[in-house]
Design a protein around this nucleic acid. Sequence first.
DNA 1: GTTTAATCTGAGTATATACTCGGAAAAACT
DNA 2: AGTTTTTCCGAGTATATACTCAGATTAAAC
Lengths: 211, 211
Amino acid sequence: MATENWQHYDFSMKKEPRQARSRASVQAMVEACARILEERGYAGLTTNAVAEVAGVSIGSLYEYFPGKEAIVARLCGALLADVSSTLNARLELTDSREDVHRAMRHLIGALHGLVRQHRKLLRVLIFQVPFIQQLPSAQKLQLELLRVAEKGLQKSRQHYRLSVSPSTLYLMATSTAGSLLHLVLMAPPGLETEVVLDDLAARMADWLEKG
Amino acid sequence: MATENWQHYDFSMKKEPRQARSRASVQAMVEACARILEERGYAGLTTNAVAEVAGVSIGSLYEYFPGKEAIVARLCGALLADVSSTLNARLELTDSREDVHRAMRHLIGALHGLVRQHRKLLRVLIFQVPFIQQLPSAQKLQLELLRVAEKGLQKSRQHYRLSVSPSTLYLMATSTAGSLLHLVLMAPPGLETEVVLDDLAARMADWLEKG
DNA sequence: GTTTAATCTGAGTATATACTCGGAAAAACT
DNA sequence: AGTTTTTCCGAGTATATACTCAGATTAAAC
């Protein structure tokens, strides 16, 4: 595209696959997209390459996706669903009698695990894909983080009387997640990150408790 | 380039401009590069566009730069020099009688100012330029951060006996800078970030004091 | 003033990538 | 079986971008 303003770009698919065969094709394209992003970076992601790696023709690709951006969008959607469900599953396990410190360590631990698992792909998505912030799924993720934090707060019985303003909560969640992301994605391999994780959790908890 | 492995790519210039005229041209190209990155993003950065905005011909551009990557590299070099000198100037002002908390607030404040100043450009550089991490200047910056942190520690008289391991110091600096970057670059405008900055500074200081 | 080096020019070439389209093949429907 | 819908195909086209080169222009050197 000549223009680089992704603000109002439509990332949706041309059409949904209806039969099992085409669903498999689309799935293969999305997986090929992930593999290529990991191995060659965003600049190496071409529609032709996706089709080739997925084992389908270029024509089939354009049957469902209007361009490579839409493939990335669908990949991000799937990734977000993973994050969301993992986070919520972790939340279910949170006992309402737990203190905030414990709950935070668990939540941050879960997030950490996810980031580590998709380390390579996340690095490319975050640091190379120009429209990543405009993706509906990325924007949903921010709200989801907020929702999880709020729900977590309410579950910790002895603390749910605390009145933390949404904007403050958002700031904390953003800064904490940002810290964690940068830590895992940018730190040289072999560095022990657990200490920092504990510190992050403690900091979040302190913040919540002291207002 | 077909390959997307920037590990051993040569980002240096073809030749240095010798006369005043050509120095001005190169300068204009670098500034054009910055403007285009801010206005159109990395995908909008083409050699032709740089030449046009800079007011020189495409031929002149290739006289000095082997490709657009080299222009970005030179831009980053200049930016780093700015960061480095600002940080060191701030360090000069640090009184050796100051406590760690105060010193940290100053340093982080200076860093914050820089990031705010180049907010738009930094966002593109960090989130869109695929080879940014491989740039010599980016790698120098990490060492520079470490050096500043170490020097700052030594300057705070009452604390320079503390033995903080280099790897720990690196972790803290990375995580703190990462937090700050994400905060300034990703937070929605209008959000009051000062609170978080103070918290970051306090956290760094506490960490240093308590080992 | 002559020579040499540096700088600039921009039409032109090569290449890579996005995307189309007419039609074949397979599946679903009746 | 016949009909309709869905899926797949891939050579071919359009376009954008990187990069070259032969020669003009300007500045420095002597």
